[in-house]
Design a protein around this nucleic acid. Sequence first.
DNA 1: GACCGGATCATCT
DNA 2: GATGATCCGGTCC
Length: 206
Amino acid sequence: MAPDLLGAVLSHTTPEGTVSLRLTEVEAYLGHGDDPGSHAFRGKTPRNAVMFGEPGHVYVYFTYGMHACANLVCSPQARASAVLLRAAEVVEGVDLARLRRSAGRGGTAHEHETRATQVSDRDLARGPARLTVAAGIRLDENGADAFSAPFSLVLPDEPVASVAAGPRTGVSGAGGDGGRYPWRFWIPGERSVSPYKRHPKAGSAN
DNA sequence: GACCGGATCATCT
DNA sequence: GATGATCCGGTCC
């Protein structure tokens, strides 16, 4: 299940180099109609077809017109059919990850360098879209096998010592049925975990 | 330090 | 035509 992926190391190799990510925060999504927040809620579509496919594959989707996010497809028998990678720690290829995060946003090369030095290690892959960018995962890699080149997925030898769970954030339906279940998991104490603040309007049930 | 709103386009109704 | 599994920057304590 989803928490098993915490601590796993996902590597992605391109001609530029290799970036390895140690997963510190994930979020589970069901593959059928019980989960209003899941892309698969409405059934199978060309976009989410990967979620209905074989476990161990990478599901990459494009959202908000500017962001790509990466998921790992799980066994249909598990609680979740897909796991969104929300945050990770860069354990290899830090420089390359930093370069990717600072590039492609316009501005001069000098500004890129300046910005690059400002991006702290913990911010490199904090958040689904950032994680995807840092790893260099592209949309056309949707459906790729996470265990085969250019990817490499190494599950942790033993489960992480402690796992924290909580409600989802930033998902429509999170305040409704979707919010009842703790489908977000992270490693407590990890500084790379996104301390996200949900929209106060959405539900300041506190 | 914390909150709010905008940007931007593939996908679905 | 509307909307979203988000991120960034400005603004106000």
